[in-house]
Design a protein around this nucleic acid. Structure first.
Lengths: 243, 243
DNA sequence: AAACCGGGCTGATCCACGGCAGGATTGCCG
DNA sequence: CGGCAATCCTGCCGTGGATCAGCCCGGTTT
């Protein structure tokens, strides 16, 4: 009997159906489980030789600091996401990582990963797909900050989170639990926390969604999609097309 | 006698010294040279099975369109850069590509690339490095748009271009030829073209740089670096650290 | 209980940037 | 040479969002 599938397994399965063997290799990557407290940074920019992790429980965000004390959150990771894959390749972390909640993560050594890839090439493809998807998310984030107004940007961000959470069984079409504060949202969206508050109020008043006490409730999915021009293609598209 | 090194070869050599054999394999990727006219898009978002290219001459920009007609330029490619590497992997283009000038590019088939990697693993590492660098540039771009003001953002963008162009022999510490219009700059920086104009004037009035008739002249490198908080680490760092 | 702290919420004011509208330059083409 | 189309440039005014300042609430510390 196999153990319950990890969030990562669930995510990858939405892309290609993995065999039992492949799932087993994947599960093998989850030895070396570690926990980290909320709020204390994992990585400091510029430090070499960081490890990579698969996030199993909890949320983290990756950000860069500017000299005036402001920061920009580049992306938010949820269960099933990789952490610091690129810093392993480049041998230097190029951003900081803050656990938003207490988290559990499995440390993944480069050798483990290479071994897994050698054993099960389809797994390599799937992980590569996940990495490309992360990159596409950053691009979409860039477009949002550059060209969408605060309302559309916020709606887009929350819709993206929703889609990603549903994929790993942490949310439904109706909503999801979200541990991000309004400060987090501001830093992610390039807005001030004060303005985030006003934007959330407007979304509420328009009957689109509510975000209260760590719970996002989507009330008018269609309306949100329209407002945000949200097209989930970049998140889940063409799995089957990839060879 | 080897032919003159391509822009890509120059770029990769700044990262690892390549042997003659490796340079030859690299040169082999430049068969299948093609030309494209300025202004006419190469790729349309969502179309499957696009080719990848190595840009040999000229500039292009990758952008995404929004429904209100605005666009966001995600990155600008110069000679030596890859074009559409990710769309080959994902089998679908996720953005549009506009040649800013007439360009020459070498079409690269997946099979060529895989073959080159199999023959010369160090080449694979180098190309992977280039891809990671591109990704880091997008992240830096995101931070700029999210948290820097128009002046710093513009200065940062031009400094980054400068550093990249110097690497492939298209510029010096004093300046470079830049075919981008103020509309391009606006679309890249998330500003209106009108405001770009004002920003360029201010940079000129502060004695930092001039951008006139397609020529960027850097007059106060230090001042620009300070204004933009520019740290080129993400462009050229830790080559030797990568194994 | 008092003090404190993090987070949510709101109003008043300010300013960086967008939008519009028109004029000046430049380069290209017949 | 004249005409036309980009592109550059500028002034004026409107506005989205930042900043500041303050209040409320629930949880923790003492």
């Amino acid at each position: 009997m196999l153990p319950a599938p990890s969030a990562l397994a669930r995510k990858l399965c939405s892309f290609v159906a993995l065999s039992e063997d492949e799932l087993e290799v994947l599960a093998g990557l989850h030895r070396r489980r570690r926990s980290f407290a909320a709020g204390r940074d994992l990585t400091l920019e510029g430090q070499p030789n960081q490890a990579a992790y698969i996030l199993a429980e909890g949320w983290v965000c990756s950000y860069k600091l500017l000299s005036d004390g402001t920061r920009q959150i580049v992306d938010v990771q949820i269960p099933g996401d990789f952490l610091g894959l690129r810093s392993v390749l480049l041998r230097t972390a190029d951003h900081n990582i803050e656990p938003v909640t207490a988290i559990e993560a499995s440390e993944v050594l480069e050798s483990d990963l290479l071994h897994a890839f050698a054993t099960t090439p389809r797994l390599a493809t799937a992980v590569l797909w996940a990495a490309s998807r992360d990159e596409a998310m950053v691009v979409e984030h860039l477009v949002g900050i550059g060209r969408r107004d605060a309302l559309g940007r916020t709606a887009h961000f929350l819709l993206e989170l929703s889609a990603r959470l549903i994929l790993v069984g942490r949310g439904t079409r109706e909503g999801f639990a979200c541990p991000l504060t309004q400060y987090h949202l501001g830093d992610a969206l390039g807005l001030s926390a004060v303005h985030v508050n006003r934007v959330l109020r407007e979304l509420r008043e328009r009957g689109l969604l509510t975000f209260q006490r760590g719970q996002v409730s989507i009330q008018d999915f269609r309306g949100l999609v329209e407002l945000a021009e949200f097209d989930s293609a970049y998140l889940d598209h063409q799995g089957p097309l990839l060879r």
